[in-house]
Design a protein around this nucleic acid. Sequence first.
DNA 1: CGGTATCCCCGTCGATACTG
DNA 2: CAGTATCGACGGGGATACCG
Lengths: 225, 225
Amino acid sequence: MGATYGQFCPVAKAMELLDERWTMLVVRELVSGSERFNDLRRGVPRMSPSLLSKRMQQLVRAGVVERVQTGSDVRYVLTQAGHELLPVVEAIGTWGVRWIGEIGDEDLDPQLLLWDMHRHVDHDAVPSGRTVISLRFTDVAPSTRDWWLVVDDGAVDVCDADPGFPVSVSIETGLRRMTEVWRGDVSWQAALRARTIEVRGPERLRRALPTWFTWSVFAAVARPA
Amino acid sequence: MGATYGQFCPVAKAMELLDERWTMLVVRELVSGSERFNDLRRGVPRMSPSLLSKRMQQLVRAGVVERVQTGSDVRYVLTQAGHELLPVVEAIGTWGVRWIGEIGDEDLDPQLLLWDMHRHVDHDAVPSGRTVISLRFTDVAPSTRDWWLVVDDGAVDVCDADPGFPVSVSIETGLRRMTEVWRGDVSWQAALRARTIEVRGPERLRRALPTWFTWSVFAAVARPA
DNA sequence: CGGTATCCCCGTCGATACTG
DNA sequence: CAGTATCGACGGGGATACCG
């Protein structure tokens, strides 16, 4: 486990677990709904699998998750203690979105962005049948420029290669701008007006597009004046 | 600054600052009202002064505190961003007090306990004039057994040597038990009934004693069944 | 899919002493 | 009171490869 502080204070005891590198991000993934090892990995791609493995064991020992194995299927299921970390994640994210404004170029990651968007698709809002959203990031290397979100019957796939289906709506913008909009630093409408996001497709879909996502709770947090 | 995560997520950006060792405890001290370097030290006695110094510089750079020097007087004053870390500290402490039940022997520290009690004295509740509370921890080495809290005119002093004033009320108990009561794991009344805390002095003062402290917010947090 | 094993480096932290 | 200076150890964690 992490190093101890030698303090009885509840904050200190909690931080002995939570202040270790990556731990809070793994918890974020868990409270966001990921249960499987490789899904968790997609949320923390820069973390080595061995370290993720170690962290999961620590979280099991701490009583935050339970490792549930059914045959060959392994899932990490939040316990009551784990669910109660949601307010902690929310408090930290709320503070972060208000006070850590500067996003460095190294924080921009199309794969991570798509992965986050993919789990915030509101299936009740997306038209029935297959809906394909294409994204083109104009300011990145060709290999990570084009992405597709394929929404079909309650499932969402992230593709970095053309899945071949007809595209319903296409988005063209900069990765930084798209990230800012996703975080709520810039509103969708403002970006459209400024023409820093271009959307193509039938007007009905273009208008509906922003409602297809249940935007992150942090996107709605008021920013300091 | 701390290592980066390469993620645009507000939680990740916040944790780049907050997950470094000791940082959250220093923030706890700051939101608890400490403003001076040596007061902060008393709240994190196991932290080396050089590391505290480094952390303070990081917190200044991050915009959490402002270093205000007036002549030779130096104070670290919370900014708006700093004040807004209070909900984070509360969320973490609330989780910690519910789910990290086991307090190791190495987490027990009479000096830290007295320092925490000292800043939770409710001056409106304590009788006017000088009030002296003596504490004796029956289960620790003689050198850290006896303590005094001297409350006088809005000021509180922690003494590890007899200040010589007449004692108003004396408390005799184990350090672990006193810590449990202070954290709210055990109620004052229950400890009295179980005779694991003995209080001596005039009955009026004995009864009033628990009201002299504004107990930590975490003490009131409901524990899991 | 769901992890382990290994290796090694670098940076953090702890300890201690000292200063204006 | 409010810090700096120095130094060394250790171990966390990054990278990579591999396994059932």
